[in-house]
Design a protein around this nucleic acid. Structure first.
Ligand SMILES: NC(=O)c1ccc[n+]([C@@H]2O[C@H](COP(=O)([O-])OP(=O)(O)OC[C@H]3O[C@@H](n4cnc5c(N)ncnc54)[C@H](O)[C@@H]3O)[C@@H](O)[C@H]2O)c1
Ligand SMILES: NC(=O)c1ccc[n+]([C@@H]2O[C@H](COP(=O)([O-])OP(=O)(O)OC[C@H]3O[C@@H](n4cnc5c(N)ncnc54)[C@H](O)[C@@H]3O)[C@@H](O)[C@H]2O)c1
Lengths: 206, 206
DNA sequence: AAAATACTGTTATTTTTTTAACAGTGTTAA
DNA sequence: TTAACACTGTTAAAAAAATAACAGTATTTT
């Protein structure tokens, strides 16, 4: 299938979670406008996204919830799930590890890395924390494809370079330093200060 | 001035931080392509953004760094800065508080709210944590205009409704529940699982 | 059985964002 | 003093995303 638009993929992930929730309410089918209500978007957008993935509902009945969840899974997930590493087990890194632990999902955090000897060797949220030296080995051995960077800004650039060398395929960067990675590595940056300053701008009365 | 595009505002925030960094290197002026290199974007985009804010550099010299920093400040910041509250002092909430503490910026976290009596009454990263009951009072009294939501998903919708009633003007939501706020409240959602699943999709070999 | 209704799927349009093209201009080099 | 150069600022074009328009169809209502 042709690559889907970025924003459509984001919404598919959200549809799936909303639908899993909805399933527990016992209903088997759902209309586009109902999905739209769950996410506070429009029904057109939902239908357009579903069109793009080639899933077609039934007239007057809407979409089969289980089927749709499954289809979305086929698009997003790999057969065996993908493995994730967190680099930098500070306050944010630990919050992330804690948050993911126990969530059943096709994405599992299987390794953490840090340089602080007080942290390496320990287990955080059930996941071992290794020294940065071991990163390449372990990422290759475990087949980890995605990394989360939560080291201080000054370190992030070096860490990203090292990650690229390990053959990682995707990076989620929480440090405020813009990273530069080759095109075969999918990079998603999230800079909290930028987001807050953006809000500040739009909130400001002129 | 006319409202700037969303993405331009994001980049302005990033320009400013990159420029502050650059200033410490002692240089007074900077070219568009140098700014571009700092953020790993293109020089055209930089020049276009600066055009939109009406700032004009000098030929052959580029932009005056201090001046540009100041102009961006005029656009993003308010005279007295804006006050921020964090609702939900769990792992993520505390990480955020810790991260912001001591950063000199025009955005300051001045209050935290939680429902857990073990947390309320305490000070986190220099900021008092109040009971949720007091939220409306304190937000109004302090003139807090921006809130960060880091409560569990099930609570987020209620919290957001309560926040809207306090007269808050902007919300940054970290819970995975999509929120619905009136148009005068600027909402920015950040759903970490969605972002990771998006990466998973683009990283997946087909 | 005709008309109204309530949906889906798709194409068309609009809006937003990025990228490209290029005219203008002071500066250096020939 | 003319040509080449190295920049900026702006307009034009392209790409991405959201929104609107609408045709198609099974079902219900009249
Ligand atoms: N805490 C937050 O809420 C928050 C918010 C926004 C952005 N951030 C960003 O996330 C990053 C981490 O923030 P934090 O609050 O967790 O910081 P922190 O100082 O608590 O943690 C940083 C961790 O990274 C480790 N580290 C340092 N250099 C390393 C390296 N080269 N390789 C591996 N590990 C290394 C440190 O030992 C430490 O454990 C920073 O870039 C920060 O800007 C954090
Ligand atoms: N921890 C992470 O890295 C992470 C990552 C992604 C998303 N999130 C989201 O952020 C939110 C918080 O995550 P966390 O890991 O900090 O969870 P947490 O359970 O550690 O903390 C939640 C906090 O919210 C408080 N709370 C509960 N109901 C409340 C209410 N009605 N009003 C005020 N406070 C209330 C709790 O007392 C607790 O202190 C969740 O929605 C989670 O999905 C967290």
């Amino acid at each position: 299938m042709k690559k889907l638009p970025d924003k459509t993929v984001e919404r598919l992930s959200q549809y799936r979670r909303a639908l899993l929730d909805y399933l527990s309410g016992g209903k088997q089918h759902i209309f586009s406008h109902e999905i739209a209500n769950l996410l506070h978007i429009t029904a057109v957008q939902v239908r357009r996204d579903l069109m793009l993935i080639g899933y077609t509902g039934t007239l007057r009945q809407g979409y089969d919830v289980k089927e749709l969840i499954e289809i979305i899974g086929k698009i997003i997930d790999t057969r065996d799930g993908q493995k994730v590493a967190v680099v930098g087990i500070g306050n944010l890194g630990r919050a992330i590890m804690g948050y993911f632990s126990g969530k059943r999902t096709r994405l599992s955090i299987v390794a953490a890395f840090d340089v602080n000897p007080e942290k390496t060797g320990k287990i955080y949220a059930g996941v071992p924390c290794y020294n940065l030296d071991e990163m390449e080995d372990i990422i290759r051995r475990e087949g980890i494809s995605i990394a989360v960077i939560s080291v201080p800004g000054e370190e992030a650039v070096k860490v990203a370079e090292a990650l690229v060398l390990t053959g990682i395929r995707g990076i989620l960067n929480f440090s405020p330093k813009p990273l530069n990675v080759p095109p075969h590595v999918y990079l998603q940056e999230y800079d909290m200060i930028t987001m807050l300053e953006k809000i500040a701008y739009f909130v400001k009365k002129n």
